Amino acid sequence: MGKPLSYHEQETLENTKRLRQMMKELPPFCADFFRGIEPRTSSRTRIAYAYDLKTFFEFLKKQNPLFADYKMQDFSLTVLDEIQLMDLEEYMEFLKCYSTDKKEDLINTERGIMRKMSSLKSFYNYFYRRERIKNNPAALVELPRLHEKEIIRLEVDEVAKLLDQVDEGDHLTEKQREFHVKTRLRDLALMTLLLGTGIRVSECVGLNLDDIDFGTGGLKIHRKGGKEVIIYFGSEVEFALKDYIDERKHVTPEPGHESALFLSLQRKRMNVRSVENLVKKYARIVTPLKKITPHKLRSTYGTSLYRETGDIYLVADVLGHSDVNTTKKHYAALEDERRRSARNKVQLRDN
């Protein structure tokens, strides 16, 4: 037997299988597009493209009389040349609210529409640049204007209350308390890690026991795109992890999950959905008016780090943003706060 696949290799393998299944539901020429973008996109991104393209071709079948009798396999590349700008503007209108065979009344926000139209633009660009189609109406589509979302994060006192709640569990329901007895140290280690390092939830669930080095306070994680980096954690994270790992040693994991750091009650590696539910369960008690997700815990960490250091480049590096402008956009309000605080720092004349 060869070396077992890592969490991220396993995830890529499963996504690749899933994408192959989805491609059977799309026109045959779409396979060229997915082969072409494979070297520069993640398997998760390609799956998102596949869903978006399926929505587009189903729209053509339902809404455009020219294609009413078409099956998915009937669409050929020449169809892209027949479509005009007005057709794509109608598609953008359609995306606001539509139904599929499986779901009714699907509603897209501005960001949802933007993503689906961006997928279509990439699709058209691929074939246009290779001179396989003559027209590129997608390049002419004006995307919806995005309104900046308010950044939701926890305040300092809310972070403390949240960790207290995870530790004590005194406001959980009776049923939740039964589970809390078994998962307290795991939940506390997981939440402390997310709040104390700002790692993504996918990076968190992918952690193995041998990714932690308590000697250096380092943690090896797999960033988006598969890059391995080491980030560092403080004493609070260290104590919480050590307590959990001591307990973890007495658990016999299911085959194939022996190396996973965080285990479910079924003794298998925790997945992204279960961590999302865990965060929601505790956060709902502490901040019922804020919709807190693992990503909001990441924003909370970024805010705290920026307030402490004032170094936007450090925050970008620790959070794994490839472009510092992404970080600046998220912490614009804090940047303004810092600029205003600078107004009286420089004294021109003695009073």
Rank of each mutant, 00 (worst) to 15 (best):
A68T: 05
L261I: 03
N325W: 10
L278F: 09
E247M: 15
S304K: 13
S118P: 00
A50N: 02
N325D: 15
L241D: 08
N15T: 03
V346T: 05
A160P: 00
V346M: 07
I113G: 00
V229K: 08
E238H: 14
E38Y: 11
R177Q: 15
D105L: 06
K116I: 04
L85P: 03
D167Y: 09
H321F: 01
P27M: 00
K291V: 03
E335D: 11
P255T: 06
Q10N: 14
G320A: 00
M86R: 15
G2H: 12
I133W: 11
T45S: 09
M117G: 02
A68W: 07
G256E: 11
E335I: 13
D213Y: 12
N135L: 08
P137H: 13
V279F: 01
R177H: 10
N344M: 02
L85A: 01
S341Q: 15
V286Q: 06
G198C: 01
R44Y: 13
G36Q: 09
E174H: 07
E155C: 02
R40Y: 09
V275H: 07
F127A: 02
F29H: 07
P253S: 13
L289K: 15
P65I: 11
V156I: 11
S42R: 11
L263R: 10
K224F: 03
N271W: 00
Y124W: 14
H250N: 14
R35M: 10
P253G: 08
E89V: 12
K220I: 04
H171G: 00
P39M: 05
K161Y: 08
K17I: 02
D74Q: 10
K3I: 09
L19P: 03
R284P: 00
G196W: 05
P253Y: 08
K17G: 03
P28W: 05
T100Y: 08
F214A: 01
S119V: 10
R111A: 04
E14K: 15
L209T: 11
K227Q: 13
I231E: 04
F57M: 01
K280M: 11
V318A: 02
H222Q: 03
E82L: 11
I37K: 15
Y282S: 04
T55L: 09
D170N: 13
E155T: 11
I199H: 02
N344R: 09
E238W: 13
D350M: 08
D187K: 01
V159G: 04
V205H: 04
E110V: 09
E335R: 14
T173M: 12
L85I: 15
E142A: 04
D32C: 07
K227F: 03
L163E: 08
L19N: 08
K102C: 00
N277E: 12
L188K: 15
R298Q: 08
I107C: 01
K291A: 05
I231A: 06
D101L: 12
Y301E: 03
K102N: 01
G217T: 10
N208L: 01
A332P: 03
R248M: 05
L172E: 05
D317T: 10
V159P: 04
K329Y: 09
E11T: 14
H8D: 09
K134P: 00
R177T: 00
Y232C: 07
D32T: 06
L209Q: 13
N277F: 11
K134Y: 14
G320P: 01
L265E: 10
L77V: 02
P39S: 04
Y244I: 12
H330Q: 13
N135T: 14
A333S: 05
H180S: 03
R130W: 11
